[in-house]
């Protein structure tokens, strides 16, 4: 499949869901270039089997693949590496300046989390998945998701005390 048919569906899916998936990849990696590389890596795995994957829950499948692929990179000490040289330079922020401080702070805080806690944060609080769905995606018990989420929250609160409080104020307002 993929090159044998169904390209239109695949392209439409990437066009529609790509931006959200790329933001998720950014949260997992804390880096713009690695985020695009992660998404492309997963799309390349998905595309040859797109017809089969699209028949079920393609976005859930891709989210799961992104989490596992990122965990795999992490295990291989990808953290200290530079991405492949032929990555495009055109990954730019729409609003490059207004949120730069917040983006940098968030990236630094997210990168400080262990990879599993990071995955829990992204799935639970960015993708707004339930504890049960997060557990199913990560292949662990719901209790593990809760404990990892609590630890992550404590860490993020310590690293981003002002930012999180501001976020709460903004929401209340």
């Amino acid at each position: 499949m993929g090159s044998d048919g169904g390209d239109g569906d695949f392209e439409a899916f990437v066009a529609a869901r790509g931006p959200r998936l790329l933001r998720m990849a950014w949260l997992l990696t804390g880096d713009r270039h690695l985020a695009e590389d992660l998404l492309q890596t997963v799309l390349a795995k998905v595309w040859p089997n797109w017809r089969k994957i699209a028949a079920e829950h393609p976005e859930a499948y891709i989210r799961k693949a992104m989490v596992h692929t990122h965990a795999s990179w992490w295990r291989r000490r990808w953290r200290g590496e530079v991405p492949h040289g032929d990555l495009p330079d055109s990954v730019t922020s729409i609003d490059a300046f207004a949120h730069v401080d917040l983006e940098q702070s968030l990236a630094a805080a997210i990168r400080a989390l262990p990879v599993r806690q990071r995955a829990v944060v992204v799935l639970r609080y960015f993708e707004d998945m339930s504890v049960e769905d997060t557990a199913a995606t990560l292949g662990c018990a719901p209790g593990t998701v809760k404990s990892q989420a609590s630890k992550a929250l404590r860490t993020l609160r310590a690293l981003l005390p002002t930012t999180m409080a501001e976020a709460g104020d903004r929401r209340a307002a």
Partner: peptide, 13 residues
Amino acid sequence: ELRVLLERGTPLL
């Protein structure tokens, strides 16, 4: 607070 922060702080790429 974290949900709001993630939504605001994650760049639109």
